[in-house]
Amino acid sequence: MPTSIGFRPTPDDERILREAGLPGERTSDTLRRALRLLDHERWLVQFRADAEALNGEDINAEPEAW
C-alpha cells in the first residue's frame, strides 16, 4: 500500500475541490472525506443488493435457533 499518492488535478478537479472543501479544510482532508463517501456509497450498493436478494424472505418461517 502506498504511503502517499501523487495527484495532478485538472481544472475541473480544482473546481470540485474548491467547492467541496469545508472552511479551513486542507485538500488532503477533502480527498479523505470524498474517499470515505465513496466507500459508504459502495456499502450502500451492497446493502441494497442484499436487501433485494432477501426481499421475499420470511424469518418467521425459519426454525428457532435456540
Rank of each mutant, 00 (worst) to 15 (best):
M1T: 01
M1Y: 00
P2E: 10
P2D: 05
T3L: 11
T3R: 13
S4C: 04
S4A: 01
I5V: 15
I5D: 10
G6R: 09
F7Q: 06
F7K: 00
F7H: 11
R8L: 13
R8A: 03
R8G: 02
P9Q: 08
P9Y: 08
P9H: 01
T10Y: 13
T10L: 13
T10S: 09
T10R: 12
P11H: 06
P11Y: 07
D13R: 05
D13W: 03
E14I: 15
E14R: 15
R15A: 09
I16E: 11
L17S: 06
L17H: 07
L17M: 12
R18M: 07
R18N: 10
R18G: 03
E19Y: 01
E19K: 00
A20C: 05
G21H: 00
G21V: 05
G21A: 10
L22G: 04
L22P: 01
P23V: 02
P23S: 10
P23T: 10
P23R: 07
G24P: 05
E25I: 01
E25K: 00
R26A: 03
R26S: 12
R26C: 06
D29P: 09
D29K: 10
D29N: 09
D29L: 04
T30V: 12
T30N: 13
T30S: 11
T30I: 03
L31D: 07
L31S: 00
L31W: 04
R33H: 00
R33C: 02
L35E: 04
L35K: 06
L37F: 02
L37H: 09
L38S: 03
L38I: 15
D39H: 07
D39F: 05
H40G: 11
H40W: 14
E41N: 11
E41A: 09
R42H: 02
R42N: 03
W43L: 07
L44F: 12
V45L: 13
Q46T: 04
Q46M: 02
F47L: 14
F47V: 10
R48V: 08
R48H: 15
R48I: 09
A49V: 12
A49W: 04
D50E: 09
A51D: 13
E52S: 14
A53V: 00
A53H: 06
N55V: 15
N55Y: 13
G56C: 10
G56R: 12
E57G: 12
E57W: 08
N60L: 08
N60W: 15
A61F: 02
A61V: 08
A61Y: 14
A61N: 06
E62M: 09
P63V: 04
P63M: 04
P63K: 01
E64Y: 12
E64H: 15
E64Q: 05
A65Y: 15
W66A: 11
W66M: 03
W66P: 15
W66R: 07
W66F: 14
